[in-house]
Design a binder for these strands. Structure first.
Length: 251
DNA sequence: CCCCTATCCTGAGGGC
DNA sequence: TGCCCTCAGGATAGGG
């Protein structure tokens, strides 16, 4: 269940393994992910290029190589993205392997449920298909952006939890961090956005930032399958106050 | 236009 | 022990 903090943890751990590496041959499984894979565009525009930087916003992560085409990932519910030795046993549900020219390493994408996506996109396509649909990112939002998010919340008749999960309002929040932030701000998830006063919504957004920063510091939350770019589990599950604690004594 | 539901898919876990 | 059922909660198409 990778959310913003898990994506940011993957980015941080992949960075030392990928930056400066040369993208090599790419293998893609025959299973469809959310959208068709443009192998031709990869071969023409990305193969042989040097990875200059990794970027992410919300739950979207992409590699930039100094050209107009990027390799973008959305991990959905069960996607895992990490580097391994190229002779390591290939796990079930591996859908992408990208050789790295040096060090006998490769990048692998594993996704049992196939709700995720791997895309070879021009920067315009990245913007149009992914980034333009995202609201402000709690890791970097400005006071002005936060005010805009609050205004959207107060003008909505949906439950506050549904609004928090809406990537077009703010990005990177999934079920785990939504639950934690609402608990920190003492807000009932069933309350409608329009029912909650702006001071409390402001407190909620501060809580979102705080629980997501803590999630990143702890290397993400692992309940089932999440691992970072180096294949390591996160530790944030030990810091959660409400998620998956139904029926247990309230902290 | 806004909101809600069904849908995609596999694996974990509970009940019997 | 094993089988069946439900559910986890990412995004989005389509219906009300």
């Amino acid at each position: 269940m990778p959310e913003g903090p898990e994506i940011a943890s993957i980015k941080a751990t992949l960075q030392p393994a990928l930056e400066g590496q040369i993208l090599g041959a790419l293998w893609r499984s025959a299973f469809a992910l959310r959208s068709p894979f443009n192998q031709k565009l990869y071969r023409e525009e990305l193969e042989g290029k040097r990875i200059e930087s990794l970027k992410c916003k919300g739950k979207v992560l992409w590699l930039e190589c100094g050209v107009d085409v990027v390799l973008a990932f959305r991990l959905g519910m069960s996607g895992r993205l990490s580097t391994v030795d190229d002779d390591e046993t290939v796990q079930k549900h591996t859908h992408l392997r990208v050789k790295l020219k040096d060090r006998n390493r490769e990048l692998r994408y594993v996704d049992p449920r196939r709700f995720g996506d791997v895309c070879v996109w021009t920067k315009d396509e990245l913007a149009a298909n992914a980034l333009a649909k995202l609201g402000p990112d709690p890791f970097s939002w400005t006071a002005e952006e936060m005010q805009q998010v609050i205004d959207k919340m107060t003008s909505s008749a949906r439950p506050i939890k549904a609004i928090l999960l809406d990537q077009a309002v703010l990005c990177g929040v999934g079920n785990i961090y939504a639950c934690e932030a609402m608990f920190e701000a003492s807000i009932n998830p069933q309350n409608l956005g329009s029912e909650i006063d702006k001071r409390r919504l402001s407190l909620l957004l501060e809580s979102v930032t705080q629980v997501m920063r803590q999630g990143l510091q702890n290397g993400g939350t692992t309940f089932l399958s999440y691992v970072d770019g180096a294949g390591n589990r996160g530790a944030n599950q030990n810091a959660l106050k409400v998620f998956r604690r139904e029926g247990e004594p309230c902290l």
